[in-house]
Design a binder for these strands. Structure first.
Lengths: 167, 167
DNA sequence: TGCATAACGATATATGATATTATTAATAAA
DNA sequence: TTTATTAATAATATCATATATCGTTATGCA
């Protein structure tokens, strides 16, 4: 997994097919272990997200899903996304109402920090024990019990920043 | 302003009217200084948010606004909110599609960390230079230029946690 | 006073998401 | 293998959130 995060092959000539196969196999194994069903529909949605290489809205995904399963309706995609989020394979990016494959679903122990490029919708995922500790400390100060953290940083990625300079 | 943040008077017997007047006066002064118009409609929306003491959805606000201005339509409230966000008086809480008065609009130099109670929608705003520095360092590592940060922590506030224990 | 701009009103529509109910497929039990 | 049970999918309706457009009105300023 480590070498196959979104940022690693975004804007590169990296062989998606290989990476895609690897990720899909990992997800399949996990589902088998958890005794949950990775149906063809759910698998298709994962495929679409892996091929996209950027944050996709539910309706982006629905449009593409319809090409394969023409009967798909909004609830179709939301059901698939709900399942994938529940299992930790997908993150919802709250600040742009989009969805991405979680690049570390096999190790869900840390909080995701998403760096979102507002130009190309590519997303880099990072982690920081320091930030996690600091958040816990702020929570404790306020007697607040943390359940889920949304850390989404907007800006411009290296690639898009270079493009602007290059123009 | 410091003594009048949302958390300070939430669930307390603090005199809202005083705090409200003070906040409103500060906003009025700032608008005068910036040469922008704080219209009665915009003022009403600020009032509604100050009285609410929790995150309000656009349509929550619209319903209340309609009681005062019956002609109000969705664009009415979104225009007011856009203005108030632009001027830094209001934050959008991205992960719940709600809006709050920013308790430190007179000093917008730091990133807001919102602790959101999923039981009562009350919100505590915090800041952390440590987290800001850590985010900058992660951004630099990825050659990412930060423009705007969304830090929203979900969980249970002290008051709601006590309620559950007390039952 | 008259022009330019900003704000507001009104309608329509787009987008995002959930609820409900029906139907079909997969698995387990008799 | 038939029936019961459960999970998955389909279809539609509805709710929630947000924007586009355009005509009108108010305000500030030359």
């Amino acid at each position: 997994m480590e070498k196959c995060t979104n940022e690693a092959h975004h804007h590169s000539k990296h062989n998606h097919q290989l990476c895609y196969e690897h990720t899909m196999q990992t997800i399949e194994k996990l589902c088998a272990k958890r005794n949950i069903r990775l149906t063809p529909q759910r698998k298709t949605v994962i495929q679409l997200m892996l091929n996209a290489d950027k944050a996709m809205s539910a309706y982006d995904l629905l449009d593409q899903l319809k090409e394969i399963e023409p009967q798909a309706k909004p609830p179709t995609i939301y059901r698939a996304l709900d399942f994938l989020i529940e299992q930790g394979f997908v993150h919802k990016v709250e600040s742009i109402n989009c969805y991405i494959i979680c690049p570390h679903f096999d190790d869900p122990s840390h909080i995701s920090i998403l760096f979102i490029c507002d130009k190309c919708q590519s997303i880099i995922e990072e982690h920081s024990p320091i930030i996690e500790a600091q958040l816990q400390s702020l929570a404790q100060k306020n007697m607040f019990i943390i359940q889920h953290s949304v850390l989404e940083i907007h800006g411009t990625c290296q690639h898009c920043a270079n493009q602007i300079v290059g123009q």
